[in-house]
Each structure stands twice: as C-alpha cells, then as structure tokens.
C-alpha cells in the first residue's frame, strides 16, 4: 500500500515574527505520507503538530510563515503557490477537518448548501447532481434520513453529527489527503470512537490518506499506520505505529507510552514526564528535551540531534547514534 509518496514535507520551518524576536513553531520537520496511508502526529500542546498541518493546507495565519523547506504533493511543490492556485488544491486534493465541529460550520447556511457549494467549487456538476452527491455524502457519514437533514442548519445537529457533516465536507471533492486536526478532541468520549472508526472506514474505502493530528496516543494506536512524535517543533521519533509503541527509542516517546493507562496493572502508578515543554522563545541548547530527559548526558546539552535510524523507526536522540560524539 505504501508505494508512491503522496505528500512529502522536507525540512519545513515555520516562523512567527513577533516584536520580541522570531518564534520557530516548526523546526526542520520532514515527513512523508504514502497514498492511502494514515500518519498519526502526536505531541503536547504547542509541539507544532497543528502548525505543521496548517502549513500543509497553506492556511498559516499571518504573520506566521513558512521560512524554509518545501512541501510537495505528488511531486509538485505546493508551499509557494499563489493563493488562487492553492485554493484549487484545498478541498480538491487536500481536505481538512478541524478540532471543533461546533464552530467549523457556518451557522447561517443549511448544511446541504455548504456541501453543494463545496462540490460545485471543485467538480464539474450541475446543481441537481451536486445535491444528489451531497445527500449521498451525508448518508456515507451515517446521518439518518439524509435527504431531509440536508435542509437543516448546523445548530440543529449534535456535536458528533456536526463532525460527521464536517467529514462529509472534507470528503466532498474526493481529496487524496485529509489533514485531520484533533478531530475528536471536542467530542464526548463515547462519540470519539465512532468518529475515528468512521474516518478510518471512509478513508479506506476512498483510498484517502490521512494526516491525523492528535494528542491521544490511544487514537493513534488504533488508527494510524505510522506515527510521528513531535516535541518543541521538531520530530522526536517517527516510524511504524507498532514499533514506536512497543519499542520506543526516544526517551520522550517512552515517557508518553508510560503515561497511557492500561487495564490490569492496578497497583502501578502512571509514569509522568517531569516538567513541561519549553516555550518557543526559550528552547534550550542541544536537544530540546534535555532538561526533562531521564537519560540525559553531556552531548545532549550541546549538540542538537537530527533524525537517525533506530530499528525500524527514526529517532532524533543521541542514545541511538551510531557515530561517536564530536565533543
């Protein structure tokens, strides 16, 4: 399944110029997504995972900007396209799902009109055809009596139903990739699983690749083919999901895995990573994780590690370095 590269992000750097200096929200991030693949991106708030997703769909809000690096979709560079060119890619090639379904839909328009509008923007169809397609999409995402509900306004749907509508909107023009930014965070726990299952099923059926941004390791374990762990704007570890979960190489990933509650180990206390992620304006020298790392040694405090092979994964940690230290 993972043959051609659909999306390729190379050395992406996203900066926010502020009055007190430039903040680097995403620093030297490289990742690939194959057609039909689900890549999970995890990390704490502010790790740069959402920012990476936003950069890929080209919706960074000024003054945020891509400072260097490139983003390629099927080999074509898309990070430097003018607005009207990029707009044809958004929705058509890359769909997006945002965190809060309650605010993602325009409250003043019927969901059907929003669907038809999106379909007509991208596909050569008549209004009637687009409407049929809209009904079909709503049925696909599991909205009961879709033909009637198409005339409802967003406020007439529950949160979970609204996220289904959002998914239908994201899929409206059959994009090849969906960037899903925390798609279940704002939902009830009981509904989260349904939405994730739905997303997984639809993307398998349509052959759509997904970049699933979340801070929920459980969702990743269940859904993703590969996972990228981000910390302070950089990728700490990236690899096949089973490998990263069972044999984490980066101490931060190990800490994350230790913080997932498991059934059956009653007496055990959950491990936690001491301290908190550094602010973007105070990232320490060397490895950004070194002040919190239980296995820190001298080199970590001086030299910043890049991604290097570690088993089947890649980790940016000196522990897995094969070559000797320069210091």
């Amino acid at each position: 399944m993972t043959s051609p590269k659909l999306l390729e992000v190379k050395n992406l750097r996203v900066e926010f110029p502020t009055r007190r200096g430039t903040l680097v929200a995403v620093d030297d991030v490289s990742l690939e997504i194959a057609a039909g693949e689900v890549l999970g991106v995890v990390g704490e708030s502010g790790a740069g995972k959402s920012m990476t997703g936003t950069a890929i769909i080209g919706l960074l809000e000024p003054p945020g900007r891509i400072a260097s690096g490139e983003i390629r979709l099927e080999g074509r560079r898309i990070d430097n396209l003018p607005y009207h060119e990029m707009r044809k890619i958004r929705g058509r090639q890359i769909g997006a799902i945002f965190q809060d379904p309650l605010t993602s839909l325009n409250p003043l328009y019927k969901v059907g009109d929003q669907l038809v509008e999106t379909i007509l923007t991208h596909l050569p169809m008549t209004h009637a055809q687009a409407r049929d397609r809209a009904v079909k999409l709503l049925e696909d995402v599991g909205i009961p009596s879709a033909a009637e509900r198409i005339n409802s306004y967003p406020h007439q749907f529950s949160g979970g139903m609204r996220q289904r509508v959002v998914i239908a909107l994201a899929l409206a023009a059959e994009p090849k990739l969906i960037v899903a930014d925390e798609p279940t965070t704002a939902l009830d726990v009981s509904i989260q699983a349904q939405i994730i299952q739905l997303l997984k099923k639809l993307c398998r059926e349509h052959g759509t690749a997904v970049m699933l941004v979340t801070h929920d390791m459980g969702v990743i374990a269940e859904t993703a083919d590969r996972v990228a762990v981000m910390y302070a704007g950089r990728i700490a570890e990236i690899g096949p999901v089973q490998e990263v979960i069972k044999r984490p190489h980066h101490p931060y990933t190990m800490g994350l895995m230790g913080a997932i509650p498991t059934m059956g180990h009653k007496t055990e206390r959950l491990t936690q990573i001491d301290g908190s992620m550094p602010r973007l304006n105070a990232i320490p020298r060397g490895c950004a994780f070194n002040p919190r790392c239980p296995k820190v040694f001298d080199r970590c405090r001086v030299e910043r590690p890049d991604l290097m092979p570690a088993g089947q994964s890649h980790a940016s940690c000196w522990l897995v370095a094969k070559e000797p230290a320069h210091v």
């Binding site: 009207h84 929705g91 509008e117 923007t121 023009a173």
Partner: peptide
C-alpha cells in the same frame, strides 16, 4: 478569525465566496 471561515478556506472556496457569502452575512 472564526473557525468556519478557516474551514471555508480549507474547502477551497473562492475569496469572493468566503468574504461576501460567508463573512459578510455573519
């Protein structure tokens, strides 16, 4: 600045549709 405008852009709608259809009406 609202999410539905960001989402409307993410759906690839034209500037005109976003500004006058979605933003102005709100």
């Amino acid at each position: 600045r609202t999410d539905y405008i960001k989402f409307a852009r993410a759906r690839g709608l034209s500037n005109r549709a976003v500004h006058f259809g979605h933003a102005l009406k709100n």
